[in-house]
């Protein structure tokens, strides 16, 4: 196993940030840790990168114990913390050179690994990191985390606050890195990014809700979901919630995802009810669960 986490708990300031969690990450896997802010993602990352010591449990990264063998781990992992931790007053090239030096390597030595990403920011290599756009900072931070050719790469919310275009490009880069035999653990609050991982763990309030492949995880969702739409979204949500048999009501893009408490749900009955509330343009169709539906059902 590239990462193994067994029964880990961590609390500080009386808050239980992690509650007895366990999972493994296989070598070469692109593993996603999916959950909102405050779920415990950053705490877990800090335990894995030897920055924090868990109160309980055993954690191994690249075969080394995070407490007793932390020095070996620090030699072979790459870490990109939540905020893009770059020296704002150093140029792009100086930042990269500095991180190469402290890891005892040079840019040239591992250039092939970062080449694809670096050429995108190379035109700005003399610009100070503080003057880069969010997307470029993110790419530079990734280069810095990769420069020593780590075996395991930890990316803590690399796409938070970044626009959809840069996010998409970033995930394409991660996919290519995976081909170079680097194990990647990435956290994100964006549920739609989960589908791009090999396997994911859903995390909420310090608990792991589920660990599986994105395809398998939605199968855990057993209820039938219906896409409901009408002329007035707000009224629709309110009346669906008032409906005596409603199990869950969540707006999802242009639709509302609705589930019913009964097994013999009849969409015409619901239509009649909604019409009686003066809603028109009614549409009710079956749809399949997404990771976000699963997450909300599990977190409920």
């Amino acid at each position: 196993m590239s990462i193994s986490i067994v029964n880990v708990s961590k609390s500080y300031n009386k808050v239980n940030a992690l509650k007895n969690i366990s999972f493994d990450v296989k070598p070469g896997e692109l593993f996603g840790l999916i959950g909102p802010d405050g779920a415990g993602k950053t705490t877990l990352f800090r335990i894995l990168t030897t920055l924090l010591v868990a109160n309980e449990g055993v954690v191994k990264v690249a075969g080394f114990d995070v407490v007793t063998d932390y020095k070996n781990i620090r030699k072979c992992v790459g870490y990109m913390p939540g905020k893009f931790s770059l020296y704002q007053d150093l140029t792009v090239e100086e930042n990269l050179m500095f991180f190469a030096t402290i890891f005892g390597t040079t840019i040239e030595e591992n250039y092939d690994l970062i080449k694809e990403i670096y050429i995108q920011i190379a035109p700005f290599k003399d610009r100070r990191a503080g003057k880069l756009s969010g997307g470029m900072k993110q790419k530079l931070a990734l280069c810095c985390a990769l420069i020593h050719k780590p075996k395991v790469l930890f990316l803590d919310e690399p796409t938070t606050g970044v626009d959809p275009v840069s996010r998409k490009e970033f995930w394409e880069m991660l996919k290519r890195l995976q081909d170079k035999n680097i194990t990647i653990l990435v956290s994100t609050p964006y549920m739609d990014e989960a589908a791009l991982c090999d396997r994911i763990a859903l995390i909420q309030d310090g608990n792991i809700l589920e660990v599986d492949t994105p395809k398998a995880i939605v199968k855990h969702y057993t209820k039938q979901i219906y896409n409901v739409s009408a002329n007035n979204m707000y009224q629709l949500i309110n009346y669906l919630k008032e409906y005596p048999f409603s199990h869950s009501v969540y707006p999802f893009g242009e639709f509302v995802h609705y589930t019913d408490t009964r097994t013999n749900f009849n969409s015409n009955e619901l239509k009649t009810y909604l019409r009686s509330k003066d809603l028109s343009n009614l549409k009710i169709d079956k749809t399949i669960a997404t990771i976000e539906d699963t997450f909300m059902e599990l977190a409920k």
């Binding site: 779920a39 938070t160 609050p189 707000y234 997450f295 909300m296």
Partner: peptide, 22 residues
């Protein structure tokens, strides 16, 4: 960007507040 990093359930509750205000 009112909902950055907020969990999916709360995010939806937030949008219900927006609908209500509108």
């Amino acid at each position: 960007e009112p909902t950055g990093g907020v969990d999916p359930i709360t995010r939806r509750q937030f949008w219900e507040l927006i609908y209500k205000a509108a």
